[in-house]
Simulated assay, not measured.
Amino acid sequence: MSAQPGSRTSVIVTMVIVAAQAVVLGILAAVTGSAILYASAMFSVADLGVEVFLLIGLVRVARPADERHPLGYGQEIFFWSLFAAVGLFVGGGVASIVQGLGEPSASGGSYALGYLVIVLITVSDGWALAVSVRGLGARTAVTGRSWWAELLTGSDPAAKTVTLSNAAAVVSGPIALAGLGLHQATGDELYDSLGSVLIGILLVAVSGLLLRLNQNLIAAPSVDPADLARIRHAITEVPGVAGVRRVIAVIVGPHQVMVAARVTLPPATDLPAAERAMSAVEERLRRRPEISEVYLTPVAPE
């Protein structure tokens, strides 16, 4: 099973929104000279790059398995998601901080227009966030895990990246409004620059979290202990199985898990009975939608 269609929908929706935002904010930042609007524009540009990387990964991960990639191309999305996190770090976070620390420039445009644009953009970011959260919610209904656990330990980096980047965009809206409002109220460009720096710090923090989450997935980890225990329990419940000597359940792609197990059979089990037991174990495991490959080895009791 490849990445869910919901992940691709979230990416495409976010891509369309941030592309429009980048154009509007870029024009407004050029007209006003506002550092905080420039930071918001850079965030939109960086976010657009993030969505492009994720879409490339989702397209490539959908390719069927072949001789060179017998387990499929699921891990490609981990690679492209890592690029997306780096792009958000450099193109959004670092650029915003550098802009905020630069020489302040007076705003030469309408504050009312700035407020209106930021509010509209924040609302659109909220809509994109709702779409991505809905996708994660659909996944929790399958796995039985909490929304937070799915976000941190789930195997779909596209869903994680688009959700966290959209959340950062929503949070950056009030920061931009506060910086612009304090600039207008005091006439001090320092607040405008400070807002830009705060947005940059927010993006650096989010990209750092994404880098960490993607690092864990690239290392091809086991599923979490609770899922591993459920897999072990499912095997031992099959008639004709005496126990499980060892189970390995490795994440090989978004919602794709390879299971390998050494299954203990009762003494004096004949070959037909052993084959029936192994077939029953494999059939039971494949009922779990995330299990894509099963390799079983029957062994005698220790």
Rank of each mutant, 00 (worst) to 15 (best):
A167S: 14
A30F: 13
A20I: 12
G49R: 04
E51C: 13
G108E: 11
G72M: 08
V52E: 04
L271F: 14
G49A: 06
V162K: 02
F53W: 13
V23Q: 13
P298W: 05
V223P: 00
A277M: 08
P221T: 07
H255Q: 13
P225Q: 04
P254I: 01
S222N: 14
G33C: 09
T264M: 14
V247P: 03
G109E: 04
T297Y: 11
V171N: 06
R276Q: 14
L217F: 06
G195W: 04
T140K: 02
L217S: 05
K160F: 07
R288P: 02
V90C: 10
D156I: 00
R287H: 11
L37G: 13
L54D: 00
Q4K: 07
G135E: 03
P221C: 12
A39E: 06
V117A: 11
S222D: 15
L25R: 01
G240T: 03
V16Q: 01
R232Y: 05
T122D: 08
G173Y: 09
E150L: 05
V45A: 02
T122W: 04
I291G: 00
R284E: 13
F89H: 02
L152D: 01
P221K: 12
E283D: 14
P301L: 12
A85G: 08
L48D: 00
E275R: 12
G92V: 10
L198W: 06
A159T: 10
V59Y: 08
T163W: 00
A159G: 08
P64A: 12
S165T: 15
I175W: 09
S34M: 09
A205P: 10
S105I: 12
P239K: 09
W80H: 05
G200R: 05
L129I: 02
V13H: 00
D125T: 09
F78H: 01
S222W: 11
I17G: 02
S279A: 15
P298Q: 07
M278H: 05
L25K: 09
E67T: 15
I218R: 12
I118W: 04
V16C: 09
V133S: 01
G87H: 01
A159N: 07
I77Q: 10
I77V: 14
V94L: 15
V162T: 12
I56S: 00
A35E: 00
T186V: 05
A106S: 11
L82Y: 10
G93C: 07
T161M: 05
A130P: 04
L202T: 05
M258E: 15
A260Q: 15
L198C: 08
L211F: 10
V241A: 04
L71W: 05
H69Y: 09
L198I: 12
V131R: 00
A46S: 08
G240F: 08
L213R: 05
T297L: 13
R212P: 00
S44H: 02
G208C: 11
V59S: 01
A169Y: 02
S193P: 03
S207A: 15
S105V: 13
F53I: 08
Q256K: 09
V259N: 05
V94Y: 08
I121T: 14
I218L: 15
D156L: 02
P289C: 05
G126R: 03
T122F: 03
I36S: 14
L116D: 11
G72H: 03
